[in-house]
């Protein structure tokens, strides 16, 4: 316990280096083009390869190509919510101002990617399983994640005093993070219609490398794209808050009066 205050303080100071919105704007402007262009390059390469050049699956046929969209979307749906939870922690413990703005901006992007994951999963399930939707543990836990995103989006904007909204949404983000391990392990803990993960940390991927490569490319590309969109929205949000503070500053009001 004696080490904890120094660790806490150190973590805090590390994040406070980037808590400064001015420093974030500078950093964001520098990395934005790199993020955007590499994201476009990797996504186009991965999806193009997946759609036109990768082989069809021996039993699923060409419908396996939906995987190159569905799997990155599924990983980012969980990853985005994990990012929301980290923002919530930074907000509650260190009162990190940028974390609150980031939580506002990550929510809608994460909800969109979760909706994409659910929709592409449905489009994949109909021809393969023979049904658009089943209430199995994996599908249901991802649907719960989608509603957690919607709740977060609504809660963080629900209060007149934004600080109260940030606090409530941070608590929701942290509590909802319980759903993430449930999503991850649902296919191992219970019988599900959804198949287990093909790519694991422990074993060889049960996927031909001719499908793994385009999947890896599109996964990197779509993740970078997610980051690029969040960084762009966050930069815009910082600028907008600066605009608001300029417009409401007493000096300006005095000057214009």
């Amino acid at each position: 316990m004696s080490a904890s205050p120094t660790l806490v303080a150190r973590t805090g100071s590390f994040f406070h280096r980037y808590a400064n919105p001015g420093r974030f704007l500078k950093l964001g402007a520098r990395i934005q083009p790199w993020l955007t262009w590499t994201a476009l390059l990797f996504t186009l390469a991965g999806l193009g390869w997946g759609l036109f050049y990768s082989p069809a699956d021996w039993q699923q046929g060409d419908s396996v190509r939906i995987m190159y969209v569905h799997v990155p979307a599924a990983i980012l749906a969980s990853g985005g919510y994990a990012a929301l939870a980290v923002c919530g922690l930074l907000s509650l413990v260190w009162r990190h101002p940028l974390a609150d703005l980031a939580a506002v901006e990550i929510g809608p992007v994460g909800a969109c990617i979760t909706a994409l994951c659910l929709a592409t999963g449905s489009l994949w399930g109909k021809p393969m399983w023979g049904t658009w939707w089943v209430w199995d543990a994996r599908l249901t836990s991802v649907l719960v994640l989608f509603f957690l995103y919607l709740g977060h989006i609504a809660l963080i904007r629900a209060f007149d005093d934004p600080q109260r909204g940030y606090r409530a949404a941070a608590i929701l983000a942290l509590a909802g993070a319980v759903d993430l391990p449930i999503i991850k392990f649902s296919v191992q803990w219970w019988n599900t219609l959804h198949q287990p993960d093909s790519i694991t940390l422990t074993g060889a991927p049960t996927m031909s490398s001719s499908m793994l490569w385009p999947l890896a490319l599109s996964m990197v590309g779509i993740s970078l794209g997610f980051a690029a969109i969040v960084v762009a929205r966050l930069r815009a949000a910082v600028m907008e808050s600066r605009i608001r503070s300029i417009l409401s500053s007493p000096r300006r009001r005095g000057g214009s009066a």
Partner: peptide
């Protein structure tokens, strides 16, 4: 390509 409508809808 088999299942083309589903693939196109996804992409």
């Amino acid at each position: 390509m088999t299942h083309l409508p589903y693939i196109l809808a996804s992409y």
